[in-house]
Design a protein around this nucleic acid. Structure first.
Lengths: 134, 134
DNA sequence: TTTGACCTTACCACGATGGCAAGGTTTAGG
DNA sequence: CCTAAACCTTGCCATCGTGGTAAGGTCAAA
């Protein structure tokens, strides 16, 4: 008994939105799903698993392009785990770079904010620093 | 002697691109600059200072909307440094939230990646975990 | 005078998502 | 059985900040 879900129910079951699912189909991340006579998309449990896979990968910050690759690897029994790990490692590098960038901003801005009295007077070290010609 | 720069030179002097400067003008962040008879934008040193201010604020990750507020505060002698500090603090909160989110991804993905052999075999804990129904 | 380096506007693109509108379908209740 | 609500469909526009490109005008040096 293959239970078929409409897009709204598939969305609830996967944690995505119907909008996202249509968008993923549109952008080639998902195969076009079968439709009812009246044109409603229908999803079986295997496709819902795929949607969940996508959601979990999105939660880890993978781009849709990366997820496309991950899905292909997942569905390929001849995959080499090397390829998966490489994608993960590249993504980890990007994450680390973003964290470093944000921490750099955080460090500078914290110092500036600490040196601003934050009262009713116009004097403000933050503005002074931003205005500095360097 | 007010030296006037064309947009390309103003871009070099401020560290922005000409494209960005036009975009900032278009979006109301900058006042429309005076033009030559033939329509070229011209920038004096005060405006170049403003461009530099914008670049430095962008380097700290402020949104253009925030920078709009910062510019107004900067140019208002009656400002209260409280307002500036509040903007900085809000932005610091956002930065901290993003860092936390990225670190969360980093932590989970690092664990997954560590448990993937990354060799020629298809077995991969990363894919297994993404596929898990939870 | 020609050439190259500028400048102008106007449009499209990214990435991932949300919103809305105008219309068709299904389902549940009265 | 009929109606209203809750779905579904497609299509377009918006976000945010930046980049690209095209088609054209301007300016300065050789």
């Amino acid at each position: 008994m293959a239970t078929l879900l409409t897009i709204g129910d598939a969305a609830k079951a996967s944690g995505l939105t119907a909008k996202m699912i249509r968008h993923y189909e549109q952008s080639g991340l998902l195969n076009k799903s079968p439709r009812t006579e009246s044109g409603y998309r229908l999803y079986n449990s295997e496709q819902v698993n795929q949607l969940r896979f996508i959601r979990q990968a999105r939660n880890l910050g993978f781009s849709l392009a990366d997820i496309h690759s991950l899905l292909e690897l997942w569905q390929n029994p001849q995959r080499e785990s090397r390829a998966v790990k490489q994608l993960a490692q590249q993504h980890l590098d990007e994450i680390a770079a973003k964290i470093a960038e944000l921490q750099h901003m955080q460090q500078i801005l914290t110092a500036l904010s600490d040196s601003c009295r934050g009262d009713g007077s116009p004097h403000c070290h933050i503005l002074q620093q931003l205005a500095k010609p360097i």
